[in-house]
Design a protein around this nucleic acid. Structure first.
Lengths: 157, 157
DNA sequence: GACGCCGTACTCGGATATCGCATGTCCGAGTCTGGACGG
DNA sequence: CCGTCCAGACTCGGACATGCGATATCCGAGTACGGCGTC
């Protein structure tokens, strides 16, 4: 999995703690976590396209949360960055090889392997969809929020 | 996910249908599914190292199942090929950045993001571990087993 | 003093290089088979 | 006829190329800010 997922989630949490009053530039977020600034932008753009973040152009611009933390699940962020595809892709190799008729009735039903993989993927997604940013904020230690805000105030000068 | 997982599972099912009397060479399996022979070998070797397959060297050698189908879970095969690592890797970026003390007590507890991702990974693994090769064999259409065996007999000549 | 305008600096956004890993391939070590030979 | 030996061929196993996607970067388009001039 792309490590951008971790970046995206941490950025969302930080933006939630900061509060949506002022947007935060990508450069600021990058130095916050010591990440490559230009590359982090790509990640934030993906979240913006997904409607999770909102980009504000111009001076004093940046990114802010587009929705309430309780309305953004961990899966929303993951899908925005990783895409919605199941990491397992059935290529129907059971139909390959000489002497196999691809139009045989047994191939109308999905491959059993594919079914199991699909169920596992669903279980994974269900777990991710069951946790929102608000849950993450709540489960974080109280000092994290305060430290984030004071550190942000320091950065703004 | 590597597409070798799909290859490995289909090869295991085919070997189970054939029965463990005669091992089946990698080349035979490759032409069976129209896969690159030399590369499929890598996959089969991984399954052998994991104790799922058993390799028989020499002429009339090949691969056969090392355990009963009921004793091999889909996760066993997946782990053998993909490795046991969680696709999400927490790099603890919360501890980065200037002005953060990595030895602060709040960092003794695992990152909430990491926890959620870990739970999702567990749910995924639980689903895969809940299905064995025997289940897959049972859920396949009856003609699949027969077709496999007759086709194999044809190959052996 | 207030309003409007303009230059500037800052920000996002997409087009462009680079690296690592999955994919794909090859040749050598080891082993069994099958047959030939000798008893 | 039976046992032994040997050459051969076949198989696995690990070492060696290659292509594509994730990673990383840069420059241009667009926008809000802040100061300046004018009324």
């Amino acid at each position: 999995m792309s490590e951008q997922v971790e970046w995206g989630l941490h950025c969302c949490l930080t933006l939630a703690w900061i509060g949506g009053e002022h947007p935060m530039p990508a450069v600021r977020l990058a130095e916050w976590f010591e990440l490559p600034p230009a590359y982090l932008t790509k990640c934030l753009q993906a979240l913006t396209r997904a409607g999770i973040l909102q980009s504000v152009p111009g001076a004093r611009g940046g990114f802010r949360l587009a929705r309430q933390p309780a309305d953004v699940t961990v899966m929303d962020v993951t899908v925005a960055i990783e895409g919605a595809d199941n990491p397992f892709r059935c290529t129907e190799i059971r139909q390959r090889g000489a002497g196999v008729d691809p139009s045989a009735p047994e191939f109308r039903t999905p491959c059993a392997i594919s079914t199991v993989m699909h169920r596992a993927d669903l279980a994974w997604r269900r777990e991710l969809a069951g946790h929102t940013l608000a849950d993450l904020l709540a489960s974080a230690p109280p000092e994290a929020a305060e430290r984030t805000r004071s550190r942000y105030a320091l950065l703004r000068g």
